[in-house]
Structures are given as C-alpha cells and as structure tokens.
Design a protein around this nucleic acid. Structure first.
Lengths: 221, 221
DNA sequence: TTCAGGAATACTGTATACAGTATACAACGT
DNA sequence: ACGTTGTATACTGTATACAGTATTCCTGAA
C-alpha cells in the first residue's frame, strides 16, 4: 500500500486560537490600554468556556503582553521608556548576531532573496501603522530566518510580540516611517559585503536609528 | 497611626509552584527521558486538582521543555545535536552582547564584583553535574545582569532553562568541566580591558569552547 | 506464534461548579 | 457634600464533571 499522508488533524487547542486572536486584537488596537480582559466576558463573546480563555490569558501574561490586575482581570502591560530602550538593545543582540551569521554563510542567493523581499515589502501600500509594523517585521524576521537558528527566531518573535502590543510605532510620523522602511536595502548591502562584524554594526545602526525615531516621537507627544 | 507593613500576600498560584518543582525535578534527572507526565497522576501526587497541574505543563510545553505526546501525556522534549549547536549560538548572541554592554559601561566596580563571584563559584565543592551547571549558570547570569537589560536576562533564563532540562553537561567529563569553570577569570579580564568588541569575542570563544566540549562528549558516548 | 479486529481504558481538552477575596456600591451619619 | 462602614458583586483560582479519541489489551483465527 502506498504511504498515505496523514490527513491534517488540526490537533488545535481552543486556547491557541484564542491566544492568536487576542494578540491580533491587541496589535490592531482593538483593545484599549486600560480595558479589562475578564475571563467570563471573553468566554461569552467567543462562545467557549472559561478554561481555554484562561489558558490563553495566562500565556499572554507569561510572555509579558498582559499583566494581572488583581481581582479585576487582565490588562495590557504598559511599557516604560526605559523598557523601550531595552527592547531595542535586545533586538540588536539578536538581529545583529543573526545578520553576522547570515553574512558568514556567504551565500549570494540569500542576499538576492532578501533584496527581493525588501523591495516587495517597501512597495506595499501603507494605509496604517499596523501595515508599516508588519512590513518591517517581515523584513527583519526574514533576516533572522536565514540565520538558520530556531532559538534566535523564537526570541525574535517573543520580543516583537511585545512591541506589537505596545503598538511601538504608533507615535512616529508617517514620513519618518517611510524613510526608515527605505533603509533596508543598504542594510542588506552591508551584509553582502561579506564581513560579519560590519553586518552586525550595520544592523546595530539601523536599529538604533529606529530607537531614536521612537524616543523622539515619545518625547514630542 | 504607624504605617504598617503589608503582610506578605503570597499571591502565588499553585501552577507556579508546580512549574518550579517540575523544572527542578527535570534538571535533577528525577524524571526519566521517556517518562510520561500524566496530569491526573501528578495531581494526585501533589494533592491538588488537575487544573494547576495542567497549567504548569502547558507552560513548560510552551517553553520547549516538554512536548505533548498525543493522548499519552507530556514527555521531556529531546534536543537534537543540531539544536545543541543552535542553543550555544543563541547564547553567543545574548551573552556576547551583554558582555559588550557591560564593558561599555566601563565601571571598575562591576568587574570586581564579577571577579569575586567567579572566585567564589569556582571554589565550591562540585559533587555532581548539577552543581557544575548551577555554578556556571550563576557566573554567566551575573554578567548578563550587569548589562541592565531585563529582556536580555529573560532570554538568558529561557535558554538556560532548556539546557537545564536537557541536562546539558551530563555527558561531559568532570575534568573538562573543571577546566571550563576555571576559564572565567580570563573572560572577565577581557571585559575589563575596555574594548566592547574584544569582550564580545572573548565571550564567543568561551562559549564555543563549551560547545566543543559538549559535542565531543556527545559523539564519544 | 502472529496478526486482525474490537472492546476497554486512559488520557486529554473543555465545560461547569464551588470557594474565597478584592472591588464596587449603597446607606448612613457627620 | 464627604467619609465610613457594612453588604453585595465580580472576578479569580481551584476542583470536579463530562465528552471524545488515541492507546492498550484481549480474544480468536490463521
């Protein structure tokens, strides 16, 4: 008998779907910063019981997206300015080293794929902040993916999920975001130059540029 | 009226305690690699209900320590050789950059504190692998702590928890572990020399030395 | 002995029930 | 109006109940 493919079993837990939905809702700003996420209310809205809702909320709490507000439910965790700086710094550690690893692979095909992706993402219509955010995330994630290290990728996702919930770019002017998004080709070029250290420093400069924009926007708002 | 201290509220969830216990038990090797962790059995042993046990297991699954084994409970997730390499590589990203940050702070007092800690940890009686592991973890964690970045520290913990559950050093000879533990003072010296890049590379060399020991041990066993 | 088939079971995932405590509210006195 | 006290409520955390499916075990035929 021919070996048959296992039919997709969708061994999916409700908790996972709820987790995803909440993350998206938070990123889209559909949940107000002070809104209380109450298990029973969410369960009613989603037409499930409290159990999977609770599991999703606990996971988001664990990941630093939500925090428990005593006996009044969960709330989106607010990030201080100091934490914003630390997030960008941690990104340098991960994405900078990923850029170095990619460079040390020295595979021309990889650079071409990255360049194509950047061009494609830069050309999308950016109607809102979320679109900017996703384009940026897609580009940076692709670089980390090319480093072939699932732990670096995991940590990338972990840190970006938090930025997502903070709606990191919400305060930056469109014109600056546009400029920042256009900064990616030089980054790939630096990687393609072949020196791992230069690649790291290029990523570092790029991310620090983003941090500067972010902090200026916060201070001017 | 005198201001009274808030009595310790211990707003602790059972799930958190169970999580800690399981992590310790796994690290100590008290749970066999193929042992099935069944919710109801654990609940009976711990004299609690399935709910907090399940929450702890789900968290450990999420963190990559356990994996679900279909309808036969949870099992310790085995790590492939490729993943071992990736773990060490991710450590270079995080701990290397942390070393650079510490060096760029250029605070003499910090180096002294680190040196004292290293001397203290190197002198402990090492009765078993776990003691080695913890001494090593303590030293490296202290360095990351000095970088003053809670996200780097979080990622450090995340990755070391996995190593712990993998019983990372279990196969390495005592004599090699001894030598490796003695390698930390030169590392601090390199940081104290004041150049951030050198600090990064020193940490990189140090961690890659550990990787070599690890891989040799695996291949010879 | 080995394999197929089917019943029993073991375990998960989800729903519901219960207990306890912080929070909100209302009533009262000042 | 304002604060204080008692009471109701809302919400969490934990326990238990239920449903469904993979896994195991047993039986019997080849």
């Amino acid at each position: 008998m021919a070996t048959l493919k296992r039919i997709s079993v969708q061994k999916t837990r409700l908790a996972d779907e709820i987790y995803e939905q909440l993350l998206i809702a938070i990123g889209a700003g559909d949940i107000a910063p002070n809104e209380r996420l109450v298990q029973e209310r969410l369960a009613n809205e989603l037409q499930v019981s409290r159990t999977p809702v609770r599991e999703a909320l606990l996971r988001l709490e664990q990941e630093g997206v939500l925090e428990t507000s005593g006996r009044s439910g969960f709330v989106i965790r607010q990030i201080s300015n100091a934490e914003v700086r630390e997030i960008y710094q941690a990104r340098i550690a991960i994405e900078g080293f990923a850029a170095r690893l990619v460079t040390e692979r020295n595979d021309k095909a990889v650079y071409e794929q990255l360049r194509n992706l950047v061009l494609q993402q830069e050309s999308i219509k950016r109607v809102d902040i979320s679109a900017y955010f996703e384009a940026n995330r897609t580009i940076h994630r692709a670089i980390v993916e090319k480093a072939n290290n699932r732990f670096l990728l995991e940590q990338f996702d972990s840190i970006w999920n938090r930025s997502n919930s903070f709606r990191m770019f919400a305060k930056i002017d469109d014109v600056d975001l546009d400029k920042s998004l256009g900064d990616h080709i030089p980054l790939i070029d630096a990687m393609a130059s072949g020196n791992g250290h230069d690649a790291f420093e290029a990523m570092r400069d790029h991310i620090e540029g983003g941090l500067t924009l972010q902090m200026d926007a916060i201070l001017n708002s």
